[in-house]
Design a protein around this nucleic acid. Structure first.
Lengths: 133, 133
DNA sequence: GCTATATACGACTAATATTATCGTATAATA
DNA sequence: TATTATACGATAATATTAGTCGTATATAGC
C-alpha cells in the first residue's frame, strides 16, 4: 500500500537524467532504457506522456529524443503524480461516486483529512526536489 | 497509487464501530459484516489479525466476538498500517534488497526523503484520529 | 527518393497483487 | 451435544500494473 508505481519510478529516473545531463542535449528513449535497464517501449510511453504535458520536449527522427522543457521547480509533485496516474487520493471515494458504501461509510471524514495532509505535503514538493537534490 | 487497501478500510470501519459502540460490549464479525456490507470471512480475518496484535480482544463461542482492548490514542497510524500490510514505504527498496536496480538507482535518496515525510506524518496520527473524530 | 532511426499511439498479453471464498479445526454456551 | 463463534491455511476470482507488439509518422543523411 501507499506505493508509487514503476511508471512513476521510471519517469523520475528519466527526468533526473534529462535534468542533470545538459539541458540542451537530446536524449533518446533507447539511450535511457539501456543506461537504466528500463524496458524501452514502456519508457517511451512514459516519455510521450510527459511530452504531451509539456514537461519535456520531443524531437522526431534520427538524432531525435527528449529534453527538459519546463523548470522542474515549477511542477509540484501532486501535479506530477496526477499526470502519471490520474487523480491522487488514498481512497477513491472522492472521485468515484459509484462507491456503494458512500451512504453508510463512517470513515470518509477522517480519511479525507489524511488525503488532504498527503496532498498538502506533495503540493509543497517540486519535481526539482527529486531530479536535482 | 498511494491507495490504502480495502483491508485497511474495513479494519478502520470495524474499529470505529467497536470504539464508539460501548467498549464493554462484544461484537461479532457477522454483526459487523451485515451492518457495513463487508464480506464476513474477510472481515473475520482482519479482526483476527488485529486481535493477534492485541488491538482488539477476541472471545470465542456463542455470545463471543470482539472488543477494543487498547486505547486507540496509543497506536499510531504507521504502526497500524504495518500491522495490516507489513513495512510501509512508497517504494520497496528499503526492505527489498533484491532490487536489481539498487546499484544504478539515481532516485533512492529523494525517494527516501518522501518516505520519511510520509512516515513522520503517520507517526503523528493515532488510530483515535480516525475512529473517534 | 530511399533507408535508418526516432517518436506516437492503440491493442494486446503477461505478471502480480488484491479481494474474496472455502474447508476444517477449536472453543464455549446453553 | 447442537449451535455459534473465532482461528487459520488453501485456493479461486478479480483488478491492477507491467510489459510487448504492430503500425504510423517524422526527419536526418546518403
Amino acid at each position: 500500500m501507499l506505493k508509487i508505481t514503476r511508471k512513476v519510478e521510471y519517469a523520475l529516473i528519466a527526468l533526473r537524467h534529462l535534468q542533470q545531463n545538459k539541458q540542451a542535449k537530446l536524449c533518446s528513449a533507447k539511450t535511457l532504457s539501456l543506461k537504466y535497464d528500463i524496458p524501452q517501449e514502456l519508457l517511451a510511453k512514459i516519455l510521450q506522456k510527459l511530452s504531451k504535458e509539456n514537461i519535456i520536449l520531443s524531437v522526431k527522427g534520427p538524432k531525435g529524443g527528449y529534453k527538459i522543457s519546463k523548470d522542474p521547480n515549477t511542477i509540484n509533485m501532486t501535479k506530477f503524480f496526477e499526470i502519471m496516474e490520474g487523480p491522487m487520493g488514498i481512497v477513491d471515494c472522492y472521485f468515484d461516486s459509484n462507491c456503494e458504501q458512500l451512504s453508510g461509510c463512517t470513515i470518509r471524514e477522517p480519511i479525507n483529512r489524511i488525503n488532504n495532509s498527503i496532498r498538502t505535503m506533495f503540493d509543497k514538493m517540486t519535481l526539482a526536489d527529486i531530479t536535482f537534490k
